[in-house]
């Protein structure tokens, strides 16, 4: 296999938030590699560190509480954590761009949407205001908004249209890596489908790599090549769509699937994962999922969990896979 150029390489990233109530261990040593055109979905429940990871890629962890303790983040050959402030600004928007979660608040209410799309073009392409506006209007047409609306203010647009504007801003400079932080959570299902289709067709055109952050496994199945399942700041399972959906290994991933409605056995009850998300100020010695896991044994709580490669593409962080013959019980329908 020819070694492809990596668009994103995260090595052993650790992010803490130092608060008055103690240190919150938001991200605890994650590794992630992303090639051109590739898309990876990061799934996990609220507080798993998904958004923190995304912000860390842009080096936008809220200061002064957020501290990147360890690790390197290399985007397109540049280390986002060590490059100069001006290089960093160039990388934001041009190298990596981000689609924000809530379109209602991600737009500035006092400027027209055209001006807001043009802003990013102006910053990165060094073009005149008029040309930037022209590009903004083109972008609006790409995301399917009539060009007349370029002079509208955010409050004159519906939620779905605002999200398209947010996407247009993110796409305007043709970044190599697109981070979509729950781009569809604020939208209803039909608009969701349109937005995902929009992102998909754009990525095909410009070969953009993407990180999709979501807790909707359905969206992941539809748009991603690979999946990272995050829990308490750790990637507990990583693999291709097939690996995660059909050859599930980690008990947490199993729990996620069990909490989804079963389309074949419609009468079956949902099986939620027992217990609560780990208190993020306490970092256990052993497995982060031990307290809620139904396969837990004593050594899980004391031994540091290492990544175990199940196949070339499939990695699981569960020490029980060192035991011969161990597997979770999940039935594949």
């Amino acid at each position: 296999m020819v070694k492809e150029k990596l668009v994103l390489e995260i090595n052993d990233l650790v992010v803490n938030y130092e608060t008055d109530n103690g240190t919150v261990h938001a991200v605890n040593g994650i590794n992630l590699k992303l090639k051109q055109k590739q898309s990876v979905g990061i799934v996990g429940e609220t507080g798993a560190g998904k958004t923190t990871t995304a912000l860390a890629i842009l080096n936008l962890i809220p200061q002064p509480t957020g501290i990147i303790k360890n690790g390197t983040i290399i985007v397109d050959g540049k280390n986002m954590l060590t490059i100069s402030e001006s290089d960093l600004r160039m990388m934001r928007g041009k190298g990596v761009s981000m689609i924000f979660q809530d379109p209602m608040t991600a737009l500035n209410p006092v400027f027209t949407i055209g001006e807001q799309i043009a802003e990013s073009v102006r910053i990165h392409e060094g073009v005149s205001n008029k040309d930037a506006m022209q590009r903004a209007i083109e972008m609006l047409e790409i995301v399917g908004i009539d060009k007349d609306r370029a002079y509208d203010y955010p409050h004159q647009l519906s939620g779905g249209m605002k999200q398209r504007v947010v996407i247009a801003i993110a796409l305007a400079c043709q970044a190599k890596l697109l981070i979509a932080d729950e781009p569809t959570t604020a939208l209803d299902v039909t608009i969701q489908a349109q937005v995902l289709e929009l992102i998909r067709s754009y990525r095909e055109k410009y070969d953009t790599a993407m990180i999709l952050i979501t807790h909707d496994l359905g969206i992941v199945a539809e748009t991603c090549d690979e999946v990272a399942v995050m829990y308490a700041g750790v990637i507990v399972e990583y693999g291709t769509l097939e690996d995660i959906f059909n050859r599930t290994k980690h008990p947490y991933t199993e729990g996620l699937f069990n909490s989804l409605p079963n389309i074949i056995e419609r009468r079956s009850k949902l099986t939620p994962i027992p217990g609560m998300v780990l208190d993020p100020t306490i970092l256990p010695d052993g497995c982060v999922f031990a307290d809620r896991c139904s396969y837990v044994i004593d050594t899980c709580r004391t031994t540091f969990q290492k990544d175990i490669a199940v196949s070339d593409t499939h990695i699981v962080r569960c020490s029980r896979y060192q035991e011969p013959g161990f597997n979770i019980k999940r039935m594949i329908a």
Partner: peptide, 19 residues
Amino acid sequence: EYIEAAKAIGASDINIIVK
């Protein structure tokens, strides 16, 4: 969030304050 979004497209501090 639009301030964060402005940072994410690479706007400078002066730019963010003024605009």
